[in-house]
Structures are given as structure tokens and as C-alpha cells.
């Protein structure tokens, strides 16, 4: 474990990420399968461009909430933290079971959590874990809750047109459960945070129809082929990859600088910088621009793809399991994507 100077920042909350557990559905979508469907692409080319070999896809009838339950059950099974401890649950998903009620209320019941607890849904994508963490830190800071279960879960595959390789190659379904506990001991802390929002880019990563602005109808389901040969309808996920790349290169390095400044830290004070795992190409571009050394930028997308709000806890789980992250480690977490929305946090273990 690297030993780091651990002067407490003025902006953090005495709390810790106690444990993380993840879950992916059984069905595998491999590059070989995709290459067979999209002429002109080979499995090797898909891997070279995305860094992804396979993604997991939720079965028909298997929802983000089902994945959320499985991740949380794994968290309770693998750690000594009992479910009775949980006094607040936050579920971050963009694929709720129902328009109403909130999926987090159903999660309380499915997990047999106590009834004397709070439960809310957060509708965010790739920035969602960091936003969820900020809400958890806020609840702890306010004395409103002490042991918060933050679950991120999504099934973008259900929004993706089978003939849209621009997104089908990238996104995978999955969920992560993270337990955040108030902790007055040691140097553990969560924060400071840095937030960003630019709604002018809302249409750059969007499922245009199916809400109340544009209800799904016969017209919204009409499939159209774009100039790159990808097919989708207004009921499907659309991503303007170029706009998202531009936004990411513009905002993420700035967010990181501002976050370090707010925390009064240097990059040298961090044992890892954990970015939203969009894909290899985007992370390589950010790594070059932000000049992050390879060993400080852990990755996890090869076997699962981009799991939206769960990518950061998937990396946390891997790094905690490997022993690279543990007591005394200090990391930056940087999420960015649909919204457009971005957020960064410093976490000291």
C-alpha cells in the first residue's frame, strides 16, 4: 500500500466506502457475434477500437432492478455488514421498472431492508455513481443517515437497436452495490466534490421518445439508417460519439484540475485516478491529455463493456480485491456522460 500524506482536506466528510460488490447478467455478447452481424467489421477491429471483448446483456424480462438486487445480495453475502445496518438506499438507474413508484422503494422490499429507512431513485448515467456518493456524503454530513446503500444498475441494451453498431459495441448491462458508512476513525473521508452540467448537449446522448415530451407511437418506432449505416428509431438510444468526445476532452481535464485545487492536493497525492470506463479509445485520449501515468489509471471494460453508472464501482471492486486500494489510499473518481453531466470526487480509504 503506498503511504501518502493524509492531512484531512477541509471539504471532506468523515465517511468511508466500506465495501463494493457487482453483478452482471449471464448472456454474453462477444465481438465474434457482432462481427458476424456487421459486415466490414472483424472481432479484432472491434477490440482494437473499443478495448472491449464482450459485454453482458440482461435477459428478456430481467430488469436493472433485478441486477441491483443481485449486486446488493452479493454485497451482504461477501461482507460482514448486515442488511439491518442500512438506513438509506439510493438507486441510480435510467431503466426503472415502472414510471412510478421509484424502483428504490421496491428495492427496499426485495432486499428485506428495514422499513424505517429512506429510499430514492437518481436518474443519471455515467456521472451517476459520483452524484450518488455526493448525496450519501451529504446525508452523513447532515446526520440524517449513517449507513447508505448506493446501488447503480442499468440495462442500456434494452434501449439499443440491434443494427446500431455505434452503441451496441460499447454498452453492457450490469449493477454495483456500494456501502457508504459514517466513520469518524482514521483519515477516511469522502469529498470534496466538483460538479458540472450542460443541458445544451441533452440531445447528444438520448432516447428521444418514450417520455412525455415525445410519447412512443407508430411514428417514433420508424427505423432510419444514418450516414454511417447504423439503424435506429426515436425509441432507441442515440449517441453522437463526436460530440461526446469533444465534451469529454473539454470538461474532464478541467474538472480534475478544479477538484485537485479544491482539495488542495496534487496528482502525486493520489494512488489512483478512476475514470468512468467509457471505452479504451476515450480513456487513452484522456490519459494522454491529462498525462496520467499508466499505473495510476486502473481500467475494467474488456469483459463487461461500458456499464454506465456502474463503471467506477466495477473498478473500485477490482482494485480493492487486488489489494491496490485499501486503508490509506486516496483516489479521484471522475464520472461524465449523458446529461450532459459530470462530477468528480476525492475519496480517502
Amino acid at each position: 500500500m503506498p503511504s501518502l500524506p493524509l492531512a484531512r482536506s477541509r471539504h471532506d466528510v468523515p465517511a468511508c466506502i466500506a465495501c463494493v460488490a457487482t453483478h452482471v447478467p449471464d448472456e454474453v455478447l462477444s465481438n465474434e457475434q457482432l462481427a458476424a452481424e456487421f459486415s466490414g467489421w472483424t472481432a479484432d477491429k472491434i477490440f482494437e477500437k473499443t478495448g472491449i471483448r464482450e459485454r453482458r446483456i440482461a435477459a428478456k424480462g430481467e430488469t436493472a432492478l433485478d441486477l441491483a438486487v443481485a449486486a446488493a445480495e452479493r454485497l451482504f453475502a461477501e461482507n460482514s455488514k448486515p442488511r439491518e445496518l442500512v438506513d438509506f438506499v439510493i438507486l441510480c438507474t435510467q431503466a426503472p421498472d415502472h414510471i412510478l413508484p421509484s424502483s428504490s422503494c421496491i428495492l427496499q422490499e426485495r432486499l428485506s431492508l428495514r422499513k424505517a429507512i429512506g429510499a430514492i431513485d437518481v436518474n443519471l448515467g455515467c456521472s451517476g455513481f459520483v452524484y450518488g456518493l455526493s448525496l450519501a456524503a451529504g446525508l452523513i454530513s447532515a446526520g440524517a443517515a449513517s449507513n447508505i446503500l448506493l446501488v447503480t444498475a442499468d440495462t442500456y441494451s434494452k434501449y439499443i437497436n440491434d443494427r446500431d453498431k455505434s452503441v451496441r459495441t460499447l454498452f453492457g448491462d450490469g449493477a454495483a452495490a456500494t456501502l457508504i458508512c459514517a466513520d469518524g476513525k482514521g483519515d477516511a473521508g469522502i469529498g470534496p466534490f466538483n460538479f458540472g452540467t450542460d443541458g445544451s448537449g441533452a440531445d447528444r446522448l438520448i432516447v428521444p421518445a418514450g417520455g412525455f415530451r415525445r410519447p412512443s407511437d407508430a411514428c417514433s418506432s420508424v427505423e432510419v439508417e444514418d450516414r454511417s449505416g447504423n439503424v435506429r428509431s426515436a425509441d432507441d438510444l442515440f449517441m453522437d460519439g463526436a460530440a461526446v468526445m469533444s465534451f469529454t476532452l473539454r470538461e474532464v481535464p478541467t474538472m480534475f484540475r478544479n477538484l485537485l485545487e479544491r482539495a488542495n492536493l496534487d496528482e502525486a497525492d493520489l494512488s489512483a485516478i478512476i475514470l468512468h470506463q467509457a471505452n479504451k479509445f476515450m480513456l487513452d485520449s484522456l490519459q494522454k491529455k491529462m498525462k496520467i501515468p499508466e499505473e495510476k489509471m486502473p481500467r475494467r471494460y474488456e469483459q463487461i463493456g461500458n456499464t454506465v453508472s456502474s463503471t467506477i464501482p466495477f473498478v473500485l471492486e477490482q482494485e480493492i480485491a487486488s489489494g491496490r486500494l485499501g486503508e490509506g489510499s486516496r483516489v479521484a473518481l471522475l464520472g461524465f456522460g449523458v446529461g450532459l453531466s459530470w462530477a468528480g470526487a476525492i475519496v480517502t480509504f
Partner: peptide, 13 residues
């Protein structure tokens, strides 16, 4: 579109 995304990153770099 993929070439264009890659070029945005290249020009930035």
C-alpha cells in the same frame, strides 16, 4: 463517424 471521433481526439492531442 468513428474516423471523425478519432480525428477530434487527434487534433486535440
Amino acid at each position: 463517424s468513428l474516423a471523425i471521433v478519432s480525428t477530434i481526439a487527434l487534433v486535440d492531442e
